[in-house]
């Protein structure tokens, strides 16, 4: 049995490392296509993110300073590690810590450039972390309280889908997901559109290969985040939840695109207020309820 688990873990990791960029890139392409149709345009082809990244890789390397490349590589590395830990079925809390570490590397990369906009973007990214980190940790706690396990495999093999116990936490997660995905209303540190007062924020001073690595890292991250959504729904004892999980993932992703197109970008104080008052309130309430009801 332990052997099977190990083999599945290896399969998961390898599949993630190889397939996640493609899945993530396609998701990004569909996001752009859906956004365009919501705005009455045709939009770029669905494979556009791949064209963009290949163009970025062909560009001349102009680094602001040598340290930046190392930091961006670390960022990519830690995102991949996050996903690998997750898809190997290991500890969820470890995954989230790895994710946070990756984000810190990105912030350091932004700080390493001597650019006012880059620094402001880094500051805002740290602020964003203050907003979504509590939820992320609450999710890990919530899963533990609901399924008595921090490990992904353990959660998957629980008695019932976690969402039965954690609906409010799920909603809270969907609410703060725009911050992680870089979408309105919480795209204060960087977004896909450069039309904000700090130009491109965190990624202002990244170009060429560095920016390509950040793009690919975001694809890996998107797959990981959708994996967390999937974790809420799927349960190995009921095979149909797996299909439902995938569908819910796609629906949530679509809803994120819709929210992006129907909200203005809010200021940091509003974001802080909303996430702490609404999202965290929902999450904490849910966890406490589950703790007492189980």
């Amino acid at each position: 049995m332990a052997n099977m688990t190990f083999i599945w873990a290896v399969v998961g990791v390898v599949a993630y490392i190889i397939l996640a960029p493609f899945v993530g890139g396609l998701l990004a392409g569909f996001d752009r296509k859906f956004t365009a149709h919501m705005q009455g345009r045709k939009g770029p082809p669905v494979l556009q993110p791949f064209f963009d990244v290949s163009k970025l890789l062909k560009k001349e390397i102009t680094v602001v300073n040598k340290g930046q490349r190392f930091l961006v590589v670390c960022f990519l590395l830690f995102i991949v590690i996050t996903g690998c830990l997750f898809f190997a079925g290991l500890d969820l809390l470890m995954c989230f810590f790895a994710l946070t570490t990756a984000a810190i590397f990105l912030v350091l990369a932004a700080y390493s450039a001597h650019s006012a906009y880059s620094h402001m973007g880094a500051q805002r990214e740290l602020l964003q972390m203050l907003c979504y980190e509590p939820i992320i940790l609450l999710i890990a706690v919530g899963f533990y309280v609901a399924t008595d396990s921090f490990a992904v495999t353990g959660i998957l093999h629980g008695t019932v889908s976690p969402i039965v116990w954690l609906p409010l936490l799920f909603i809270a997660f969907v609410m703060i997901l725009p911050a992680k995905l870089g979408k309105s209303p919480f795209d204060i540190s960087t977004s896909h559109h450069a039309h904000q007062e700090i130009v491109k924020g965190v990624t202002t001073e990244l170009a060429g290969g560095n920016l390509a690595m950040v793009e690919i890292a975001h694809w890996y991250e998107d797959v990981f985040l959708l994996g967390v959504i999937f974790l809420f729904i799927a349960n190995m004892n009921h095979w149909w939840t797996i299909i439902l999980g995938v569908i819910v993932c796609l629906v949530v992703y679509f809803i994120q695109t819709l929210i992006d197109n129907t909200c203005a970008r809010v200021k940091w104080n509003e974001m802080l207020r909303f996430t702490w008052l609404v999202a965290i309130a929902l999450g904490v309430t849910n966890v406490i309820l589950v703790y007492y009801l189980r």
Binding site: T35, Q39, R41, S191, H193, N261, A264, R265
Partner: peptide, 16 residues
């Protein structure tokens, strides 16, 4: 103005 506060979809709608 819509573009200024990050609401591109509204920007395109007005210009339509």
């Amino acid at each position: 103005l819509a573009d200024g506060f990050g609401f591109e979809a509204l920007f395109y709608q007005c210009w339509r």
